[in-house]
Simulated scan of single mutants.
Amino acid sequence: MVLAGLPAGADALRIASFHTQLTREGPGLLLRDILRGGDGQVAASVAVIAAAGADVLVLQEVDFDADGLALAALADAVEAAGLSYPYRLALRPNTGRPTGVDIDGDGRSWRARDAQGYGHFNGQGGMAVLSRHPIGAVRDFSDLLWADLPGSAAQAVLPQAALPVLRLASVAAWDVAVELPGGPLHLLALHATPPVFDGPEDRNGWRNADELRFWALYLDGWSPGGLPFAARDFAVIGTLNVDPSRGEGRREGLGALLDHPRLQDVVPRRPGGGMETADWPDPVPGDLRVDYILPAARLTVTGAGVLWPEGEEGALPASVAAMASDHRLVWIDLAWPPE
Rank of each mutant, 00 (worst) to 15 (best):
P283R: 12
G53C: 12
L71W: 05
L29E: 15
A322V: 08
A156R: 15
D102R: 07
R232W: 00
L240C: 07
D102M: 10
W174C: 00
L316C: 01
P200Q: 10
A162Y: 01
R113E: 14
R88A: 13
A324E: 02
D33V: 01
D279R: 14
G82V: 05
A304Q: 13
R139M: 00
L180I: 13
D210V: 04
V2F: 01
G247L: 10
F214E: 04
L190T: 15
R250Y: 12
S325F: 03
V267N: 05
G123V: 07
Q41L: 13
D63K: 09
V42T: 04
G274P: 07
L257R: 10
R111N: 15
R111Y: 00
M1S: 14
F121C: 02
D65G: 09
L263P: 03
P93W: 11
A192L: 01
G68H: 08
D140N: 15
V176G: 03
A161E: 15
G199R: 13
Y292W: 00
N208Y: 07
A177G: 01
D243V: 06
A172D: 10
L22F: 06
G205E: 07
G107W: 12
A77N: 01
D39A: 10
E201M: 08
G68C: 11
G205M: 12
D287S: 14
S319K: 11
G255M: 01
L35H: 00
G107I: 12
A230C: 07
E61I: 06
Q124N: 00
L3T: 06
W146R: 07
G182N: 05
R139L: 06
A153C: 09
V236G: 04
R269H: 13
V330W: 06
G107Q: 12
A10W: 04
H191W: 11
V330G: 10
L166C: 01
L168K: 05
Y218M: 13
G272R: 11
A75R: 08
G26N: 00
D198V: 01
A128E: 06
L329K: 08
V242F: 03
G221V: 10
A80T: 09
S152K: 04
P224M: 09
D104P: 02
A154R: 05
L83H: 14
V178I: 15
Y85A: 11
A137T: 13
